[in-house]
């Protein structure tokens, strides 16, 4: 035992949680970068994904790790539906479109919370007896829960996949082109609406994957989204709206700083550290670490 042990412990768990934060936030950032829309129902997407994992587990008794692809697929469809049913109309507003988008997605968030309360009751749920739940890895005195290790690894793999998707595929190029110039892409035969819809599908699928990870070790209830949504907004703004790599870097910073804050402040104030850091960074770099204005 050395005196550095508690510090390393905090660093390691902060890093793992930070990677999960990055995974939660990247869908939000992706959608914003694509079409300048902040989804105020992002936390509720996460909550739905957690309930989807719980519901599927309840029906099939399969492990959340096996169910994750199914949850991702469900959320992909949900994201496309939300774009087609709500966001598409919000974008048509000619007067103050920013407010219309905020309140259309905020109304959606309340609606989803209400639906969750109606169908799933406000009770706290958790998934019992999963493969990873409650198990920890001992790395020379530093203990890391396996669910967090799994989440961190999934997050890293997802970011790699996202990088390849955007840089190597036609869809990625269309995504990049649409975000550069929405008007010009129509001239080269890209259907803007279709790209937006797929962007929402992808954004929701990404937060869906995060939900499938969180459901293993976090309580599931109708208001769980709010807990993570604010951290996601901070992460996205810290990294720079629209920057995918920024979301990864900012997520890690947020996780580590949050963990370090618990060393000096009571646990109830752990968010104060990341909020203060976020404000400090933003006042020096108004468009975030890796954002462009």
């Amino acid at each position: 035992m050395t005196s550095a042990q508690p510090f390393l412990q905090v660093l390691a768990s902060g890093l793992a949680m930070g990677l999960i934060y990055a995974l939660i936030a990247v869908g939000l950032s992706l959608i914003f970068g694509l079409m300048d829309v902040v989804n105020f129902a992002h936390g509720e997407f996460l909550m739905l994904a957690m309930y989807a994992t719980f519901g599927l587990f309840f029906e099939t008794a399969l492990d959340p790790i096996v169910l994750a692809p199914l949850v991702v697929a469900i959320m992909f469809v949900l994201g496309i539906s939300v774009y087609a049913g709500v966001v598409r109309y919000a974008m048509r507003a000619k007067t103050n479109p920013g407010m219309v988008q905020i309140f259309a997605t905020f109304g959606l968030a309340i609606l989803i919370q209400g639906l969750a309360q109606y169908f799933f009751t406000p009770d706290y749920r958790s998934i019992p007896n999963t493969w990873l739940g409650g198990k920890t890895l001992n790395l020379g005195g530093v203990f890391l829960p396996w669910p967090q290790i799994y989440g961190g690894a999934i997050s890293l793999a997802t970011f790699l996949g996202l990088y390849l998707l955007i840089s190597r595929t036609d869809f990625g190029k269309a995504l990049e082109a649409t975000r550069e110039d929405q008007g010009a892409v129509a001239l080269v035969g890209i259907d803007r609406n279709r790209i937006f819809a797929l962007g929402w599908g992808l954004g929701a699928a990404l937060v869906g994957l995060a939900g499938a990870v969180l459901a293993i070790f976090y309580y599931i209830h109708p208001n769980v989204g709010g807990t993570f949504a604010l951290v996601a907004y901070v992460t996205v703004a810290l990294g720079g709206f629209g920057s995918i790599f920024g979301a990864l870097v900012a997520g890690i910073i947020v996780g580590v700083v949050e963990a370090l804050t618990t060393l000096i402040l009571p646990p109830a104030l752990k968010s104060v550290g990341i909020f203060t850091l976020y404000l400090g960074v933003l006042f020096i770099r108004p468009s975030g670490l890796l954002g462009r204005l």
Binding site: M99, G107, I110, L111, G114, A116, Y118
Partner: peptide, 16 residues
């Protein structure tokens, strides 16, 4: 949650 469903739905509809 019925109140939230109606409230959220209305906010969304009016905004749109």
């Amino acid at each position: 949650g019925l109140d939230l469903i109606i409230y959220g739905g209305l906010v969304m509809l009016v905004a749109l």
